[in-house]
């Protein structure tokens, strides 16, 4: 089939915009999607190459932004579900955080969980290798109770856990990391309804 020059330009602009919108996906996946949509447009307008037919075909697909959104949300969601990888999970949670308050809440809780869990885990490890300079210290004064950790040499008395920091840090910190990951995964599966699917 041969499209008119104007129609060809419209199709090219649509596909270029779609490719740009899909930049978060792997290049290989994004290019395959663009090729499939190009084939769809050619097949759909085959035998009726008027500019109106091309416009109607593109309208039925939605704008490049809408179409890409449907791919992106599904892609990230499925990768988070299937790969169970923290990297994909965080990307999916980040995307969700930008779409709803619920997503934002899950993202904040996940951030807190990873922060505290990761911190404890690292402290446990550091204590193992630098026992004299790593510890958790409690300071009790008349007006204030606080807990802090430090590395670089204890300058205050009152180390709280001593060697117990190693198993406690590694087990509780590691457990918290795992729990946060599972929490994020569970929330996404249970509550995330990608926006694109509400427009079916």
């Amino acid at each position: 089939m041969t499209l008119t020059e104007t129609s060809q330009k419209t199709v090219d602009a649509y596909l270029k915009s779609l490719r740009r919108e899909l930049r978060e996906l792997l290049d290989e996946d994004a290019e395959e999607i663009v090729e499939e949509i190009r084939t769809h447009i050619f097949d759909k307008t085959s035998g009726e190459e008027s500019p109106e037919a091309v416009t109607a075909t593109l309208a039925a697909l939605g704008t490049p932004q809408e179409l890409a959104e449907r791919y992106r949300t599904q892609e990230l969601l499925e990768r988070a579900r299937l790969a169970r990888s923290p990297k994909y999970l965080m990307r999916a949670t980040l995307r969700w955080a930008g779409l709803s308050v619920m997503g934002l809440l899950v993202f904040a809780l996940s951030g807190l969980g990873y922060g505290v869990g990761g911190g404890l885990f690292l402290l446990g490890l550091l204590k193992l290798f630098h026992p004299s300079t790593t510890g958790v210290y409690g300071i009790l004064t008349e007006h204030d109770t606080s807990l802090n950790w430090q590395s670089g040499g204890p300058n205050k008395p009152g180390e709280l856990l001593g060697w117990w920091l190693v198993p406690i840090g590694i087990l509780i910190g590691g457990g918290l990391l795992l729990l946060t990951f599972r929490f994020g995964n569970w929330c996404i599966r249970k509550f995330w309804r990608p926006r694109a699917w509400q427009r079916l």
Partner: peptide, 16 residues
Amino acid sequence: VVEGTVYPLLNRLKAL
């Protein structure tokens, strides 16, 4: 069926 919905769904079924 909205055309722009079927292709992302096929992509998802493939991922699954």
